[in-house]
């Protein structure tokens, strides 16, 4: 009965009770709040950004008087810096699988009764709740060429000077990946931990009876059954990865040497606010939104092939 009501609400409307009607009205009112919020804070800015992207808007001039059609989009396709920053953004995403693997391993280690496990869990989660700007400043010091912790350790071990982490075009990417992985590790651990605790013990017992060793159980039970968590982390990681900005803004100046550390969002901000090319920045934002949408859609489409649930 419930299923048929859900499947064809129009047919059942005349038979709805007063209470059901009342509930429906209240429901609509409650739904209206987020809907209006979405219209005001998401839909309107999206439409506005699209209109702005078709103009030479500087932030101070008139959008309508400076309408240039799709010229900004055409320019973007041949803008070497756009592709360079897009490349850097994708390189930074190397940190996503690294973070997931580390997160799963640490969560597995912490998913057992060992003394002080709660303290460990808290410690790993501290970076997640810390201010991004504050920890980025701290890590900039950790990576400092002369006085940084990493280079002091490298010097103590090897006797030689460590890399110019934030000044070298290649090492800055390594530094950013390390920082972003560290910052996101706590989230991966907590989510994997909850995923691991949802796996019934019976599965492992059955596997042990069947002669499976620890690795086989981990590979054939743990990994598939935490795949919904992996999928969630992948999607949020990729979306967040395309939007990296603060790390670059705080840890290096002006996008780093030769713009080597700049991400696509940093370039967007640079163009829109520092060079007053709001129209061009809006076009970039729109392209970025489309790319994120496509990548997310591909992920959702492909999830059937590898995401398993306990049910």
């Amino acid at each position: 009965m419930a299923a048929s009501t859900a499947a064809n609400p129009a047919k059942t409307k005349p038979h709805m009770s007063q209470m059901a009607l009342q509930e429906q009205r209240w429901g609509r009112l409650f739904v209206a709040a987020p809907f209006i919020g979405f219209c005001l804070f998401s839909a309107f800015p999206i439409v506005f950004a699209f209109v702005a992207s078709l103009s030479n808007w500087t932030g101070t001039n008139s959008i309508l008087n400076n309408f240039i059609g799709f010229k900004n989009y055409a320019e973007l396709l041949t803008d070497a810096r756009f592709w360079k920053t897009m490349g850097t953004t994708v390189i930074y995403m190397i940190g996503i699988p690294i973070g997931m693997v580390l997160g799963l391993l640490i969560a597995t280690a912490m998913n057992r009764k060992i003394p002080g496990v709660k303290i460990l869990r808290t410690m790993y989660y501290v970076p997640v709740i810390s201010s991004l700007v504050a920890v980025a400043i701290l890590w900039a010091w950790v990576f400092n060429y002369d006085y940084g912790l990493f280079n002091i350790i490298i010097k103590a071990i090897s006797g030689g000077k460590g890399p110019n982490w934030l000044g070298d075009e290649t090492w800055v990417k390594v530094a950013m990946i390390i920082f972003m992985t560290w910052k996101g590790l706590g989230t991966s651990i907590i989510l994997y931990l909850s995923g691991l605790q949802n796996i019934p013990r019976d599965y492992y017992e059955a596997a042990t009876i069947d002669g499976a060793n620890g690795w086989q159980a981990f590979r054939n039970i743990t990994i598939p059954l935490v795949s919904p968590v992996t999928f969630y982390l992948l999607i949020t990681g990729i979306i967040g990865g395309f939007q990296v900005f603060v790390e670059v803004s705080v840890m290096v100046s002006n996008g780093g040497t030769n713009y080597s550390a700049a991400t696509v969002v940093y370039y967007l901000w640079d163009k829109a606010f520092k060079s007053q090319q709001m129209g061009y920045g809006s076009a970039m934002a729109f392209i970025l939104a489309i790319i994120i949408f496509i990548v997310t859609a591909i992920n959702f489409y492909g999830q059937d092939k590898w995401v398993k649930t306990i049910d």
């Binding site: 500087t58 000044g167 070298d168 075009e169 002006n254 996008g255 040497t257 030769n258 713009y259 163009k271 520092k274 060079s275 007053q276 090319q277």
Partner: peptide, 17 residues
């Protein structure tokens, strides 16, 4: 706007490196 000169300053950093 300042974009043209910003390119120069970025270039200076690149030259130094």
């Amino acid at each position: 706007n300042n974009e043209w000169i910003s390119m120069f300053w970025e270039g200076m950093t690149a030259y130094r490196s």
